[in-house]
Structures are given as structure tokens and as C-alpha cells.
Simulated scan of single mutants.
Amino acid sequence: MAKKEKLDPETEALIQWCTQVETFLVAGGATLAQAQEHIEEQVEWFTDQFYEGLTPEEAANEALL
């Protein structure tokens, strides 16, 4: 079995934030698969939003515009 790589706290926070964004995208009408795909395709944009301090809800709302 491969060892799990320990992520740094900042990366863990970003992943948790994206998971929360996913929830808001689904609430806005996307399927879970669509939300995940969109985040993966736009990962740089979402990462920027995270570092700019947007809440997951604000980022999802921007993405849904």
C-alpha cells in the first residue's frame, strides 16, 4: 500500500474550501459531477478566489454568473 502524503495546512484549507464551494454550486442548480468538473477545470480561478478571501458562497455565486 502506498503511504498517504501529508498535505500542508494551507493545501488542506484550500481543499476544504473547494468542497464547500461545491455545495453552493449544487444548491445553485449544478449536479455534483458538474460542480466538481467546473472546479477542476477552473482550479486556478478558484485558487485565486480562495487567496483573495472570498467565502465559498461568494466564489460559487461568482462562478454561477
Rank of each mutant, 00 (worst) to 15 (best):
E62F: 13
G53F: 04
A30K: 14
F50T: 04
L7I: 03
V43K: 13
A59W: 12
D8H: 14
V26G: 14
T23A: 14
I39K: 00
L32H: 09
E41G: 10
L7M: 09
P56W: 03
T47I: 00
E58L: 04
D8V: 09
L54G: 01
E10I: 10
D48L: 03
C18G: 04
L32S: 14
E40V: 02
Q49L: 11
Q34S: 10
L25W: 01
Y51H: 15
M1L: 07
N61H: 13
A13L: 09
W45K: 05
Y51Q: 12
A2C: 05
I15L: 05
L64Y: 06
A30I: 00
K3D: 09
T55V: 03
Q49I: 00
Q16P: 01
Q34E: 15
L65G: 15
E22Q: 12
E12R: 12
D8K: 15
A33N: 12
T31I: 04
D48C: 02
L65E: 15
A60D: 09
G53Y: 06
N61K: 14
W45Y: 05
L14H: 03
L64I: 04
A59Y: 11
T47R: 01
T11M: 09
E58I: 01
A35T: 02
T11P: 01
E41N: 15
E12P: 03
E10C: 04
D48S: 06
A2T: 08
K3V: 05
E10D: 11
E12F: 02
M1P: 10
E10R: 15
D8E: 12
E22D: 13
A33D: 13
E12G: 07
W17H: 01
N61L: 12
E62D: 13
E12K: 13
Q36S: 09
F46T: 01
A2S: 13
F24K: 09
I39G: 00
F24V: 06
T55G: 06
I15P: 00
A60L: 07
